[in-house]
Nucleic acid binder design. Structure first.
Lengths: 229, 229, 229, 229
DNA sequence: GATGAATGAGCCTTCATTCAT
DNA sequence: GATGAATGAAGGCTCATTCAT
């Protein structure tokens, strides 16, 4: 029968190829969804719109993701994981709590700055991450838990070592993130045209001023300025 | 002739009562809506749900407010206005830029802490106020513009006088608000049981550390600690 | 108790007075409804609007009429009855079938011309009266049946006497009415400013031409022209 | 490479089929809507009802038409256009103003008689076309304007040539249409069982009697009677 | 009796999701 | 596997009608 040769028939494709195509779609969908969620928000985003943006059909989309929520969830999970990995990778070569913190900030900002759509989704969620029961999907929560713990424990250590003023580490972590977001929101608003490294230094400086005892802050602020020269 | 008593005459005292009841409903609706918006967000909120929460019918709700957007808008407008007024009233007796800032922070926090539902709506909006084009209703924008200008110009003055480090006033204003919100989010999350005055002092201290030169920060931190004793 | 003297209390009014007031309301409502139905059509008309136009409350309106349909029905019934009565009164002094017809036309037109709102309702209904199953209310049907019979039997007699060409009397009656309506629609459209007597003569002439044998038409057209001098 | 057969390629023959099915639905919807509008009127018609009548779901209906008004508009526009075209086509072979008029009448009647639902919608609108500002949709107005001009200018020419009595062409056009409608309403009411050609001849005869000088009318009435033998 | 505030059924429309082709 | 047409549940809003004051 000639049916087997119909253009859409892929039943004789090797599993490897099938998997590869599936991953291709997956990525295209995630990219498209990120863009649409960034522009329209979760409720405003239409599945049809996402499928069109990805250049596939609704059916294919649903064949790969279970629904709108699952898709959203997946983005948060994937991007969040990537972000955490990248941060973890970069902070490895850091020496000491403060350098660890500053490098982490830089990694975090650099990651988001190169993923503007995810950044915009992130900013849209606002402080949702700071009040966990308003998060749309559990995946977000898990990621944030992991990231938070990393950040929190760093702050806790820093407080112990005296490089940070005595504040609740949780609060410090949240404020740090919120501050980052404000800075990046401004960067988005101004057309994403500013130099991301200025952004990094600005946030680092602010963090030092906000959380370190004066003399510690002064020392490190000088270092940053020196590096920027 | 006693024409004034003709059957169709309603000019007696009725309007007063009518008005009173109307205001009663109005308030009940606003409270209910605030609660529902706080819990479900704008898109997730259902008019039917709001009406039920207010203990009235859909028809009555629509008799008083023009629709979902109008209702949301009204809350933002009213609460936003109240908040700005309260802040303006309290900062009047402040002396100097820094005291002005600290009193303003206290007023802002105290206002929101006593309106938890509005606070939660506020936190839901997240940074929408920081990227103006994502605001849902014009009323919100106007309010924020006014509030922002107040805050910004204060920071600008403070930078000129040397009580603040040299940062862009817009950024300072946004960071301040974001930080407040984080602190309050944590307070909400912990069941709204902590002493709001601790909240006030925490935020004030953080603001001082983050934006003032060390010696200025030190002096005022001492003052705050003294007052709290 | 002083309650008995409250302005809206009418329990001690004499039945005569009560009846009189009721009729007063009745008329006010009918006038208001006629106007609103004329302007907005049946579906577009709002009971609230009608009550306001009549200067009374919705409750009073519903105390006197059973609902929107009943109100509409009542107008059709009342106005239709009035119209038929007036026509019957005027044609009494007519001599012969043709004069009877011409006087009837005049009476019909004069009636509607002095009730522009009812006329507009009438025109809005279009040919509803010509396809009985689209009539909104039974009252309309009864009235039209009576009026139709009058007109039909006149045409039937005229056909017998040879003053009309042989056509189905029902059809003749309907065409006559439709033609009237067109003429009046034009009059309404032009701002109701033309002389109604020109309208009467125009319609009479058209009817003569359309339904009489040539020589009969010619004779009566001359009479009409003569009367108009 | 056989890129044309890639899984996401749909450029084959599918669009043809899709278009065909779409047109099928389109027609089914238009038919259903025509019927429902005919029976219930515009306001009374429910979209759910139309979808059910067409044997499809609401979603599909809305996928093809933008809404109730658009659907109504489309019917008026399409049917009106078809009618005008058919009339224009048939009157082409007419010779002289009077034959032109008679052929036009025949074409108009024959068109509506074969589209009973559109006819009933048409009759429901009543004289709306005679008072343009009551038309529901712009599409209707345009169609009527075009048709009217055709009819009017024919009457105007006929008046000039002396084959019609001197009456305002606008009025003549309107009366003609109203008369047609009455005749057709009767035909509908009687179960649409009468011979449409009788209808045509009846209306033609009436038009001749109503608008032509006696001798002209006599001559053409004889012609019609001859043709019917 | 008079009022008009209150009710809630019902309608148009959207969009996440399914499934026949 | 891929498609996208088809589905229908659900929500915002209106307005005829009722009934407590």
């Amino acid at each position: 029968m000639k049916a087997a040769a119909a253009p859409t028939d892929t039943s004789n494709a090797k599993p490897r190829i099938r998997e590869a195509r599936r991953n291709l779609y997956r990525q295209a969908i995630l990219d498209a969804a990120e863009k649409v969620f960034a522009e329209e928000g979760f409720e405003g985003a239409k599945m049809q719109h996402i499928a069109a943006e990805a250049g596939i059909s609704l059916g294919t989309l649903y064949g790969i993701f279970d629904g709108k929520t699952a898709l959203y969830s997946e983005i948060q999970s994937t991007r969040g994981g990537e972000m955490l990995e990248q941060i973890a990778r970069e902070v490895e070569r850091a020496d000491g709590v403060l350098e660890f913190t500053l490098v982490g900030i830089a990694a975090y900002v650099r990651f988001l700055v190169t993923r503007p759509n995810y950044l915009r989704m992130h900013l849209r969620d606002g402080h949702a991450w700071a009040i966990f029961d308003t998060l749309k999907v559990p995946a977000q929560e898990e990621q944030w838990q992991r990231g938070f713990e990393m950040l929190q424990s760093t702050f806790a250590r820093g407080v112990d070592e005296g490089v940070f003023v005595p504040l609740a580490p949780t609060l410090m972590a949240r404020i740090t993130l919120a501050t980052h977001q404000i800075w990046m929101a401004e960067w988005v608003e101004s057309g994403m045209s500013g130099d991301p490294e200025d952004l990094v230094r600005g946030i680092q400086a602010h963090t030092l001023r906000a959380f370190c005892p004066p003399e510690v802050a002064a020392r490190w602020l000088a270092k940053i300025a020196g590096a920027a020269r």
